[in-house]
Every structure is written in structure tokens, then in C-alpha cells.
Amino acid sequence: MGLTFPLLATVTWLAALGAVALRRPVYAALSLVVALLGLAAIFLTLEAQFLGMVQILVYVGAVVVLVVFVIQFTRNDEVPLTGLAFRPVSLGVGIAVLVTGGLIACIAGTPEWAVKPPEGPPPGMRQIGEGLMGVYVPALEAMGVLLTVALIGAVLIAMRGRSTSLH
């Protein structure tokens, strides 16, 4: 119990690091899979089983598959594919470190957050269903519209790209 979270956290973080740092996009995508699975496991430790499953289904099952497809589709062998893809000390990394440092400082500076979760089981599927079909119906509907629009938009953008390339 005591070791579960640090282990998962370490694996997730390292996998995330690989996902952005590996030169080969396919490796990066695979590393992302690991990171996402780690996150799903962490969700489970938070007793958010439903969300963990959603995370695996949506991200690992859909998003990453999409990413892999695109990677295959845009394969380009001219780029050297070994080692890290960026210099460790660069402006971008500096900014990222700065932001992370700020966040950590903020967390560390807030003692109220060093709390354990309350006893008893958290709300389950029932509450989720009532929330989705009750207060959050408009949001759910908007989400559906958004996904439809995104679907059509994605298809249109991809198609238009082909037509311009044909000219």
C-alpha cells in the first residue's frame, strides 16, 4: 500500500518524459500509452474506477491509436532518430521548469492540502449517472455537439488538405 503510489507515480512520470523526449514518434506514442495506463492506475487508487476505465478506453483505445495512425501516415525518415530530441537546457525547458517550480511552490505553500481522503466509499456510478442526466445534461449535449462538429471539421480539414495538394 505504501509503495503503490510512489511506484506508479515514478513509472508514469518517466513514461511521460519518454513520450515527449523520444525522437522516434512511434516510441513516443508507446511511451504515452504507458503513461496513460499509469494514470489510469492512479485513478484507481483514488477509487475512481469508472474514470480509470474511460481513460483506458478513450485514450489508450482511441486517441493513441489515432496518433499511431497519423505517425504512420506522416512517416518521414530524413530526421535523425536517436537520442533526445531537444537540448536539456533551452528556453522551452526553462519555462517548463519555471512553471513546474511555481506549481510545486504553490502546493508546498498550502498546508491545507496535505490531507488524507475521508473515510467511506466515494460516490459511485449512481451519482455519476444522476449527474450526467440531471444537472449536467446541457453540458453533455454540448459535448455531443462538440464531438460531432470536431468529427466533421477533422474530415473537412483532412479533405481540403488533399484537394489543395492536388492543385
Binding site: 507515480a9 511521460a16 515527449v20 522551452g92 525547458v93
Partner: peptide, 20 residues
């Protein structure tokens, strides 16, 4: 706070990737 810490670190990694 440990979760938050992990979240911050993940966010930092993602940001670094986006920027670099």
C-alpha cells in the same frame, strides 16, 4: 499534496514537450 505534486510534474513534462 502528493497527487498534486505528480500532477504538477506531469504538467511540467507536457509543457516542456510542447515548447521544445
Amino acid at each position: 499534496d502528493q497527487y498534486l505534486l505528480l500532477s504538477a510534474l506531469l504538467f511540467g513534462i507536457g509543457l516542456a514537450g510542447v515548447l521544445t
